[in-house]
Design a protein around this nucleic acid. Structure first.
Length: 692
RNA sequence: GCCUGGGUAGCUCAGCCGGUAGAGCAGCGCACUCGUAAUGCGCAGGUCCGGGGUUCGAGUCCCCGCCCAGGCUCCA
C-alpha cells in the first residue's frame, strides 16, 4: 500500500541539484544519466529494447513504469516481458486493452476489475441494458483490441486525489466503490504513511496523441495501481478464451457481471505453445479416454456424478484394487467391511451432521421417525469396529482398511467426470494408536504411501501441510497446534519438504497431503494423512495400557488413492491412456497375417495366457494394416503379428507401443519372459510419453 | 443456484434465408486372406432433449422446462 518513493523524494530534494545522476544496476555497475532521466532512457542507452524486451523496471525494490524518473543513487533493474513480473504486467496491460475495446463497442458499459490470473487475465463488465456477451462477440472484441495495439497508444500514469478520481469515474459505480475502499484503507494509516500514500489513487490514460482527455471523447482511462507496458504496441500475442458470469467481488448477493477471460504472452511462439498445452490436456481428458477405451460411462438414467465401469474399466479397477489390497495386507492392515447407510445419531456423534451436512445426501425418513443417512465417510464405521470390544495396548497400532464406498452430494455445478463424483470408493484406512506411537506410525504411513504411488508411476511428488480451518474446526487450539507440529516434525525428520496450506485441514484435524505432478505439469492432491484427537473423544474410545489404566488412542485417517475413481482418472490423464503394461486391461493382441496362421496365433495366445498375461487374438477378417492400426489406437502395449515364417520357427513379430519399427522373428519364449518381467516390475518404463 | 455454450444415428459432427434429415467412424452381411497405422460392395440405424406457440409447413423462429460442458478463488 505505501509508496517507498515518498521518502526518497524528499531526501533527494535536499540534495544538491546537479546535471547528472548515478544509478546502480543489478550487476553492481553504475551508470551516469542526465537529471530527470527515466528508466526508459536507461533502456535506450543499453540498446536493449529492440523487441520490446524490457517493459518495466524495478527501482529500489519496487516495480514501476519505464517512464518513471530515476533518482540519484537509485538501484535499477529492468523487467523483461518473459520474467514472472513482466508477464504479469503484460497480461494486466492486455486486460486494459480488453476493457478499452469493450467500451468502444458498448458505449456506456461499466467496467469493474481486470486482474492477472494464472496464464492470463480477465476483466469484468456490466453491459448497458442488461446485455450479455456471447461467444461470437469475442472475435469482434479481439479485432478492436488489435486496432488499439496497432495505434500504439501510450499508457500514461497520473496521480489523482480521491475526489478528483470520484469525479472522473462518475457513472462507474464499481470504480467508485474501489476508490472509496482505497480511501477507507488510507484513513486507517497513520499520518506519516498517509502522506506516503499520496492521499489519492493513480489512473492510467491511453493516449494516441490526439489530445483526447476523458472517456467521453474517445481516450481510455482506468483506475490502476500499475505498472504498465510503455505502450499498447508492446502487446499483441493474446487470445480471448471464454466468457463467464461472475459475481461482483465473488459475492452471490451482489450483481452478476460479465467476465471475459484471455491469455497473453510475450511472443507468438509462447502463445501457441500455451494453446498447444491446452489441446494436449484436452486430448488427455479422462472422460474422452474413458469412451475411447471403453472403460466407463455416466448414464443419465442413473444420475449426475455416478459412473458405471465397463468390463475393461472394471478390469483396470480390479488390478488397481488387488494391488492395493496386497500391499495393505503386507503392511499390516486388517480388512473390514461396513454398510452404506446408518442412523442419524451416528453422524451426530461423529460431528458430520454439524460440520459436513451440506455435503451429505438428505436423510431417508423411515416409519417410526427413524432417519438414515448415506455415509459420506468411512471413519465412524471403522470406529465402531474398534469399539466392538475392549482394546489392549498390545493390539496397537490397529490398522483398519476398507475399499469403502461413500456418497457425497456435490453441488450440481462442480461434478466433473471421475474426478468429482457423487458416489466413490475410498481406499480408506483408520489407524488407532497410542499417542507415543504416532511419530513412528506417521513416518511409516508416509513411506508406505510414497512407495505405492511410485509403483503407479507417480514419483514426482511433494507434500502439503493443511492447518486448522477457520470456523468449522472442532477441538481446542492447543491440540490443533500439537497435532500440526507433530506432522511437521515427522516430515522434517524424513527430509520431506512441506508446502503450507493454511486453513485447508478437515474439521477434526490437520493433514499432510501428497501432491503429485503429472506428465504435463499439473498437480493433483492424491493421498492424505490426517491426525485426529477429536473423534476418539467424541466416541469415547479407549484402550487398556500396560499399567492397567484406560487411555485414549489417537487416530490417523489415511487415504492412499483418495478415491479409486479419481485416482484412475489421474492415471489415465498422466499416461494419456497408454497405461503401463501391468495396468492395461488388454496387454497383448495377437494378429495372424492370414487365416492359415490362426491356429498358431491361438497357440501363442495360450502361451501368454499361461504366463498370466492378458491377451486377445484378432483373426484375419480384415487387412493386417487395419488391425494394426486399431490395436495402436487402443494403445496396446504389445502387438504380435504372426505369419508363415513364425509358424515354422516358433517366433513372433513384435510391435511395441511407442516404437516405430517392429522386430521380426523374436522367439516366443523370449517375448513371454520379457512381458512377464515387465508386468512384475510395474512402474512405468515409458513414463507417460505422448503416444498418438 | 447464476452466466456462456451445447443437446440431430452407438460415437464425432454437418444441416444456409422455415420446405418433409445427411457424412465419417462404429455395427451387421457378403466377398477378399493380406508381414506392421484405414480392402471393397451392400444393409440397417432417427421421438432432431421434452412440452407449448407462430406458420400452409418447424431440426431450423419464439416461450417454458430438462440434461451436459466451461466459468462463477486470484480483489485497482
Amino acid at each position: 500500500m505505501e509508496s517507498p518513493t515518498g521518502a526518497s523524494l524528499s531526501e533527494a530534494g535536499k540534495r544538491d541539484v546537479g546535471a547528472t545522476i548515478e544509478v546502480r544496476l543489478a550487476d553492481g555497475s553504475t551508470v551516469t544519466l542526465s537529471r530527470g532521466a527515466t528508466a526508459a532512457d536507461l533502456v535506450a542507452r543499453n540498446g536493449r529494447n529492440r523487441s520490446g524486451e524490457a517493459i518495466a523496471a524495478v527501482v529500489d525494490g519496487r516495480v514501476v513504469d519505464l517512464a518513471t524518473a530515476l533518482e540519484d543513487g537509485a538501484e535499477v533493474a529492468l523487467v523483461s516481458a518473459s520474467s514472472a513480473e513482466g508477464l504479469a504486467i503484460l497480461r494486466h496491460s492486455t486486460a486494459h486493452v480488453l476493457a478499452q475495446a469493450v467500451l468502444r463497442l458498448w458505449p456506456g458499459a461499466r467496467y469493474a476489475i481486470g486482474p492477472v490470473i494464472d496464464d492470463g487475465f480477465y476483466y469484468d463488465f456490466e453491459l448497458p441494458r442488461g446485455e450479455h456477451f456471447s461467444e461470437e462477440d469475442l472475435a469482434r472484441i479481439e479485432e478492436a483490441m488489435r486496432a488499439i495495439v496497432a495505434e500504439d497508444q501510450s499508457f500514461v500514469r497520473q496521480e489523482l486525489s480521491f475526489d478528483a478520481a470520484l469525479a472522473l469515474f462518475a457513472g462507474q459505480p464499481y470504480k467508485q466503490e474501489i476508490i472509496e475502499a482505497v480511501r477507507a484503507g488510507a484513513d486507517e494509516l497513520d499520518a506519516s504513511s498517509k502522506e506516503a500514500a499520496a492521499g489519492g489513487v493513480s489512473v492510467y490514460r491511453n493516449e494516441a496523441g490526439s489530445g483526447a482527455r476523458t472517456p467521453s471523447d474517445g481516450a481510455f482511462v482506468d483506475l490502476c495501481r500499475g505498472p504498465h507496458v510503455p505502450s499498447t504496441g508492446h502487446l499483441g500475442h493474446f487470445k480471448l478464451m471464454r466468457v463467464a458470469g461472475a459475481y461482483w467481488r465473488g459475492d452471490e448477493r451482489r450483481p452478476q457481471l460479465q467476465r471475459i477471460y484471455g491469455t497473453a504472452w510475450p511472443s507468438e511462439a509462447a502463445l501457441s505453445e500455451y494453446l498447444y498445452r491446452l489441446e494436449e490436456a484436452e486430448r488427455r481428458d479422462h472422460r474422452k479416454l474413458g469412451i475411447e477405451l471403453d472403460l466407463f460411462s455416466f448414464p443419465d438414467e442413473i444420475g449426475s456424478g455416478l459412473p458405471v465401469f465397463h468390463p475393461r474399466g472394471g478390469l483396470l479397477r480390479r488390478v488397481m484394487e488387488d494391488y492395493s489390497r496386497a500391499r495393505h495386507a503386507a503392511a499390516g492392515y486388517e480388512f473390514v467391511y461396513t454398510p452404506h447407510i446408518a442412523h442419524k445419531e451416528l453422524f451426530e456423534t461423529s460431528g458430520h451432521l454439524q460440520s459436513f451436512a451440506e455435503g451429505m445426501y438428505p436423510p431417508m425418513d423411515l416409519e417410526g421417525g427413524q432417519q438414515y443417512y448415506l455415509k459420506p465417510m468411512n471413519c465412524p464405521f471403522h470406529i465402531l469396529v474398534y469399539k466392538s470390544r475392549q482394546r489392549s495396548y498390545r493390539e496397537l497400532p490397529l490398522r483398519l482398511f476398507e475399499l469403502g464406498t461413500v456418497y457425497r452430494h456435490e453441488k450440481s455445478g462442480v461434478v466433473h467426470g471421475l474426478t468429482r463424483v457423487r458416489g466413490m470408493t475410498m481406499d480408506d484406512s483408520h489407524i488407532f494408536c497410542a499417542r507415543e506411537q504416532l511419530p513412528a506410525e506417521i513416518r511409516s504411513v508416509l513411506e508406505f504411501v510414497l512407495d505405492v504411488l511410485e509403483q503407479f508411476g507417480l514419483s514426482d511428488t511433494y507434500l502439503e501441510l493443511s492447518t486448522r480451518p477457520g470456523e468449522k474446526a472442532v477441538g481446542a487450539d492447543e491440540e490443533w497446534e500439537e497435532a500440526t507440529e507433530l506432522l511437521r516434525s515427522v516430515a522434517a525428520e524424513m527430509g520431506l519438504a512441506l508446502v503450507p496450506d493454511e486453513g485447508g485441514g478437515a474439521f477434526y484435524g490437520p493433514k499432510i497431503s501428497v501432491q503429485a505432478r503429472d506428465a504435463i505439469g499439473r498437480h493433483h492432491q492424491i493421498s492424505t494423512v490426517q491426525l485426529d484427537y477429536q473423534l476418539p473423544r467424541r466416541f469415547d474410545l479407549s484402550y487398556v495400557a500396560p499399567d492397567n489404566t484406560r487411555r485414549r488412542p489417537a487416530m490417523l485417517h489415511r487415504a492412499l488413492f483418495g478415491s479409486v475413481e479419481r485416482f484412475m482418472a489421474i492415471l489415465l490423464e498422466h499416461y494419456a491412456g497408454a497405461l503401463p503394461t501391468w495396468l492395461m486391461p488388454e496387454q497383448v493382441r495377437v494378429l495372424p497375417v492370414a487365416g492359415d496362421h490362426q491356429a498358431y496365433a491361438d497357440l501363442v495366445a495360450q502361451a501368454l495366457r499361461g504366463a498370466g498375461i492378458r491377451v486377445a487374438v484378432e483373426g484375419a477378417d480384415e487387412p493386417l494394416n487395419a488391425r494394426v492400426r486399431r490395436a495402436k489406437l487402443a494403445k496396446l502395449p504389445y502387438i504380435l503379428v504372426v505369419g508363415g515364417s513364425d509358424v515354422e520357427a516358433g517366433t513372433v513379430g513384435l510391435n511395441r507401443r511407442g516404437s516405430e519399427r517392429p522386430e521380426r522373428g523374436v522367439p516366443l519364449d523370449a517375448v513371454v519372459a520379457m512381458i512377464q518381467a515387465e508386468i512384475e516390475a510395474r512402474g512405468s518404463p515409458e513414463q507417460a510419453r505422448v503416444l498418438r
